[in-house]
Computed example of a mutant assay.
Amino acid sequence: MSKRDYYEVLGVEKSAGEREIKKAYKKLAMKYHPDRTQGDKALEEKFKEIQEAYEVLTDQQKRAAYDQYGHAGVDPNRGGAGFGGGADFGDIFGDVFGDIFGGGRGRQSRARQGSDLRYNLELSLEEAVRGKEVEIRVPTLVECEPCHGSGAKKGSSPTTCPTCHGNGQVQMRQGFFAVQQTCPTCSGKGKIISDPCTSCRGQGRVEKTKTLSVKIPAGVDTGDRIRLSGEGEAGENGAPAGDLYVQVHVREHKIFTRDSNNLYCEVPLSFSTAALGGELQVPTLDGKVKLKISPETQTGRMFRLRGKGVKSVRSGAVGDLLCKVVVETPVNLSARQKELLKEFEDSMGGSDKAKHRPKEQGFFDGVKKFFDDLTN
């Protein structure tokens, strides 16, 4: 795959001075630095591309070779100046990021912060609405107590790597030029442990299942996250621990459906109550309440019970309960009941049909007009 133009990578003109190049690099590297894009391989490669462009364009000899011959002029495999040259990545990193990410001048390795963890927590609707305190067990890496995370046996301590002198990288010479590589002795850590801790075998961290108490605030919903700072994996070499994110998932409820702060439910309604009106007991999360049904209620009508929904975890506003009534057709009728219904149906026929069933009459009038228009 062909490399992009270094000036294009940094977003500067070919006439840009070193100060302008450093400014552009600092802005891009702050955005794509691995500390901010952990785990995203594509962004890590982009950061390497930015870093490579910066190193070439801030070195006068390599920049001159690049301007004259392009990438071939700085490619060691083609006899060019070679990426890495005499420039020290630690100097670059220290100059630009020393005050931002904590990197020191000439320092190649930094203790890595522990990874963030995620715990999936299932709750019932009632638990999510009211909130509760739960205990969770989380398998993680914690700091080794005997060595306090250093990896060295008690009474000893890690020593500076004699190969890279604490930089974490070494230079491989190719004639006049050099290429930087991870130090093979310390694997880029800058320190070696001659007498490792027996508990963690020199890793500074051990596996452990932690039991944590998590307070679930009232009103949480599926997709909400609760952050427990410092409860993730322990960092390397005593670095800060990551965070634990408790991911909430609310199970489906047999009666209620939640939409934001409102609750919905369907309530069956008898034919006679729908026609004559009456009272109906409907469920809420706080118990049963009476709902007044007005005469001639049609199926699908929505009744709103204000303040019977969910209290928002963010604003504190309380939603409503919306009850949709569904008129239930009688089943398993006796002979007498069928006879009564037939008499009832006959009583609404004739000229009074439109009066008692206006929707039905209006529908069929519309159908008749539709076919009349087709034939004309």
Rank of each mutant, 00 (worst) to 15 (best):
Y6L: 15
V9C: 06
L10F: 03
G11C: 05
S15E: 15
A16E: 04
E18P: 10
Y25P: 00
Y25N: 00
K26C: 10
L28T: 01
L28A: 09
M30S: 15
K31T: 14
Y32Q: 07
D35S: 14
D35N: 11
R36Q: 07
T37R: 14
D40E: 11
F47T: 03
E49G: 06
L57H: 07
T58F: 05
A65R: 10
A72G: 12
D75L: 08
P76A: 12
G82A: 11
G84I: 03
G86C: 02
D88Q: 11
G90R: 11
D95G: 11
I100H: 08
Q108W: 04
Y119H: 15
L125V: 11
L125A: 05
V134H: 13
E135Y: 01
R137I: 00
L141M: 12
V142Y: 13
E143Q: 15
P146H: 02
C147T: 09
C147F: 05
G149A: 12
K153M: 11
K154C: 04
S156Q: 11
S157A: 15
T159D: 11
N167S: 15
F176E: 12
F177V: 12
A178T: 09
V179R: 14
P184L: 07
P184V: 04
I192P: 02
I193N: 05
S194P: 04
S213A: 13
S213V: 14
V220H: 00
D221T: 13
S229F: 13
E233F: 01
E236W: 07
A239G: 08
G242W: 08
V246G: 02
V246L: 05
V248E: 01
V248D: 00
H253C: 09
R258D: 02
D259L: 06
P268Q: 12
P268S: 13
F271D: 06
G278D: 09
Q281E: 14
V282W: 00
L285Q: 02
I293G: 03
K308M: 06
G309A: 04
V310G: 08
K311S: 06
R314Y: 02
G316H: 02
V318A: 04
T329A: 10
K338R: 15
E339K: 10
E339W: 06
L340Q: 14
E343A: 15
S351G: 07
K353W: 06
R357I: 12
P358V: 10
F364Y: 13
G366E: 08
L374T: 05
N376K: 12
